[in-house]
Design a protein around this nucleic acid. Structure first.
Lengths: 239, 239
DNA sequence: TATCGTATACTTGTATACAAGTCAATATAA
DNA sequence: TTATATTGACTTGTATACAAGTATACGATA
């Protein structure tokens, strides 16, 4: 291999690049919920042909982040209260099971050691974000914290489902932009989860995670009131 | 609309047709785990161009039912013990949460009424399959039984994840071809779940479903021993 | 004989051409 | 004026052409 060139980074197909780029545009809200877009917008933006763009669009449409209107274009998915709650429910179920399983296994020294190190590092990073009042970076640190458990569990299928679910939830969180007190509260809840898992208290770990993810969309009504255009008005009726 | 033609059936794109056809070929094992196939096989089989075939292949590859080898072809995914266990874990987590939630709600008369009717009908169908010793039809009835809960819960996101998970598990079940006693045992477990949910006993419903899905892949070692070629030998190492 | 280079016949990845549906503006007719 | 065709400029769905990577057979060379 040529020195310095593509050291370790696997070469991605254009389709994969398109998927990642467009998804990031959607989750960052640079593409607005409800906005009408066309394949041609993406071919121009990414400077590639329709084929890889369509591939990405199909994938995002299966993920329910894009709604394709045949022969008429496509819409960036509105934030749907129903979709958010469905997604939150799935995340709660899977992550509760994950930490319960990990708490069971945390008797084993090598599992425990890896987990402990990674969790404490993540908590430190979160505290730094709080101190610097950097909400966007905190959002990322929060996701990373949860990712630590999924990584440790080693269930790739579960991890990829959860990260897909996070997409829908994070658009809401981007709009809520935490107050410092909210971040402090979240760090506190995280600490309780860590405490329970590392002390191998399965039930307490499950309860703590369930409570934590139960409160995840607590301020959705406020966000919805402030950005009504981004939300699906006909929620609950047809989909 | 022309009388008798496409009465109520939404017109599907070729891509969707290809997805369903190929998926069915894989799950029925008519396409063997590990078998090498090419896009051209599907274009001939389905009499359409590469574009919709590729669309289907991409989707199935995300579902991990097909493994694409760039520039070399593709392989029908081997049955991976790891994949099966990951998938079973996800299903257990989600379905336990689902029945727990339903048991909570089954105090409400209209929820209860709908559920009760559908569940008892499904149990009857299962008993018929046992009586006629029709294992394939039983497999389908079993899936339908679980689907009743997901339908009643009304969480479309959760339901579609579970039905995706079922794909990997059902290839194993197709190979195990139940003995009559095994079917009787499964019906019995189903009855216990129904009993618990309808009597609003949340904990018992969760326990019964967890036990039921915990035993789901009990005979995987036997199947693996009988059909070693269909299984991923390098399981647990790289993926 | 064994090794290496090369041509070739595959494959998938990507770009483009063509078909067909949708919508809005506009011309036409009552 | 109002209702109805009609046209045309869009869109996505589908087919095909082209680019580039991979494996294999085969012949030249040591």
């Amino acid at each position: 291999m040529l020195a310095g060139i593509s050291y370790g980074e696997a070469k991605k197909t254009l389709g994969e690049q398109a998927y990642e780029s467009i998804r990031e545009e959607i989750l960052s809200l640079r593409l607005h919920p409800g906005q009408t877009v066309y394949e041609s917008d993406f071919t121009r933006m990414l400077n590639m042909s329709r084929t890889p763009v369509r591939e990405a669009v199909r994938a995002l449409s299966m993920e329910r982040l894009i709604e394709v209107l045949p022969q008429r274009g496509m819409k960036i998915a509105l934030i749907s209260e129903r979709q958010v709650e469905e997604t939150r429910f799935v995340r709660e179920s899977l992550e509760v099971s994950a930490v319960a399983c990990l708490a069971d296994k945390s008797g084993s020294p090598e599992v425990r050691a890896n987990l402990e190190e990674a969790l404490h590092r993540s908590l430190e990073e979160q505290r730094r974000c709080v101190q610097q009042e950097d909400a966007v970076r905190f959002l990322h640190a929060d996701d990373q914290f949860h990712q630590v458990f999924l990584q440790a569990l080693g269930n790739i299928t579960l991890a990829s489902i959860v990260s897909q679910m996070r997409g829908h939830l994070n658009r809401v969180r981007m709009l809520s932009l935490f107050e410092p007190e909210a971040m402090i509260q979240l760090v506190h809840e995280h600490e309780q989860i860590v405490e329970a898992v590392l002390s191998a208290d399965t039930d307490q770990a499950a309860r703590a995670m369930r409570a934590h993810l139960g409160r995840l969309m607590e301020d959705l009504p406020i966000v919805k009131a402030r950005y009504p255009d981004y939300f699906d008005a006909s929620d609950g009726t047809a989909r």
